[in-house]
Design a protein around this nucleic acid. Structure first.
Length: 436
RNA sequence: GUGGCCGUAGCUCAGCCCGGUUAGAGCGCCAGGUUGUGGUCCUGGAUGUCGGGGGUUCGAGUCCCCUCGGUCACCCCA
């Protein structure tokens, strides 16, 4: 009765630990994305993880992301704050606060929180990266933004990605269209699924996204946005499409694509991974949000951006069997069967010289230390035993069977670095190598 | 938030339907075969709050309830 068991904690629901080697793979993915961004002159912005609740409410009062899924709470000073459910709102807030020169082209990579029921490819804590470009009304910017995402997917080897695209028109167009959809759906209200009838009340456009069989037929006959676009919106959209054609980015027009966030205007798009058979096959999405900066209290400023889901991209990569980067690999594993002092000193010396090295702590037999060396994947085992110690030498044993690494041999301690430098690369300490 | 399925060693799983001696396998791990040499092979070894709590029973991994977690779908979205 008095015996108490120590409670064992585990990660909260929907949150998980990313362990090696998966952690390195994610880092490599992000590095790829950053490279694409920088090639187009986008630079990183790092907004806070927490904002005033009001910032996120601008995302849309009618969206689930804001109404049901936000991690919001009252701070110690009684202000209402929230963990970000997405990045765009914070970035636009930052834009309004700092008023940078236009155009402002930024990228971000970070963690978001949404209190949803976890599912494959959907977690309560999840990473996204994306870009935002503010201050330009040119359709060619839409093309640039979309093309950047498209190039990124190609660069990591993803092939089965479909770009879905649509235009929701200007604010007024969208309003008129929404009303038309509402009227139409009301006329068929009794045929809609129960859930969609509820959705219809607060956000008619979202009904168009329903996956329920009974809704499908009705949705098919719903009014099309294209018929509600102003001449200007239609021209903008046409120019986006012709731009994509010109640079060879293929797309599928989807007149039902409405997307979940209220702030979208005109161009909207989504990337679907065809290799994913789960319902979570949207690996990214974005669009224009021309009214958002103004809603945030800033000047009327056009904007466009997208966000990509790291977890889902990786899932898609798994499904296609692509993007399996290998780590750089350990160069030397030091084995010391005497006192351990040589292992201590040599690993330090090698690392300082830019050669990656590891050893085993706690000694152990030659055999067991060799097993450790093998498991480490090291290119060379560097052996120090009684014999070597006596004559101030080490034994260098190639472990990977590469002909270029030569045969096992004895090397003088003073010649060690010179010998290894013939095989192992130097590390620039200001630019540590990453896995590629 | 709603519903289906699942939860047994570090991992993948068998055992559960038809309760009954020390709960198993493969992989991994450790050690030895090889008193200085890994990856193959052989031999041996360690490891389980059977997710947690309660109940039924002489007896529960096995049956019942609750709960937590996972998973899939819906909702929604990346």
């Amino acid at each position: 009765m008095t015996e108490t068991r120590r409670e064992q904690f585990q990660a909260l629901r929907g949150m998980r630990d990313i362990l090696p080697p998966e952690s390195a793979r994610r880092r490599a993915l992000t590095a790829q994305f950053i490279a694409q961004c920088e090639s187009a002159d986008y630079h990183e912005v790092v907004p806070p993880l927490v904002e005033d609740l009001g910032v996120f409410l601008r995302v849309g009062e009618a969206t689930d992301v804001v109404t049901k899924e936000m991690y919001d709470f009252v701070d110690k000073d009684q202000t209402r704050i929230a963990l970000r459910p997405e990045m765009t709102a914070g970035v636009v807030r930052a834009f309004v606060q700092h008023r940078p020169l236009l155009p402002w082209k930024v990228f971000y990579a970070g963690t978001n929180f949404r209190h949803e029921r976890p599912q494959k490819g959907r977690y309560r804590m999840f990473d996204q990266f994306g870009i935002e470009a503010l201050g330009v009304d040119d359709a060619d910017l839409d093309v640039e933004v979309i093309a950047l995402a498209s190039r990124f997917f190609e660069s990591i080897g993803l092939r089965q990605v479909t770009l879905l695209i649509n235009s929701l028109g200007e604010h007024e167009d969208r309003e008129r269209y929404t009303e038309a959809v509402r009227q139409y759906l009301l006329s068929r209200r009794d045929d809609l699924s129960e859930a969609s009838q509820v959705t219809l009340e607060r956000n008619p456009l979202r009904v168009l996204d329903s996956k329920r069989a009974e809704d499908r037929q009705i949705i098919r006959d719903a009014p099309l946005v294209a018929d509600y676009l102003s001449a200007e919106s239609a021209a903008h959209y046409a120019r986006v499409l012709s731009g994509l054609d010109a640079i060879g980015v293929s797309y599928t027009e989807d007149p039902r694509l409405v997307r979940g966030l209220d702030y979208y205007r005109r161009t909207t798009f989504e990337f679907a991974a065809e290799a994913l058979d789960s319902a979570q096959n949207a690996i990214g999405g974005g669009g224009r949000y021309d009214g958002l900066a103004e809603a945030m209290g800033g000047p009327a400023t056009d904007g466009i951006g997208f966000a990509l889901g790291v977890d889902r991209i990786l899932l898609a990569c798994d499904a296609e069997g692509v993007f399996t980067p290998e780590s750089a690999g350990l160069e030397v594993f030091v084995i010391d069967t005497v006192s351990g002092e040589a292992a201590r000193d040599i690993t330090h010396q090698l690392r300082a010289a830019g050669i990656s090295a590891d050893r085993r702590f706690g000694g152990g037999s030659m055999k067991s230390q060799m097993k450790s060396a093998d498991r480490s994947g090291a290119r060379f085992a560097l052996i120090v035993g009684e014999d070597e110690l006596a004559v101030d030498e080490v034994t260098l044993r190639p472990m990977l069977g590469r002909p270029a690494d030569g045969e096992q041999r004895r090397v003088g301690r003073s010649d060690l670095l010179g010998e290894l430098n013939r095989y192992c690369g130097q590390i620039d300490p200001t630019n540590p190598r990453t896995i590629s």
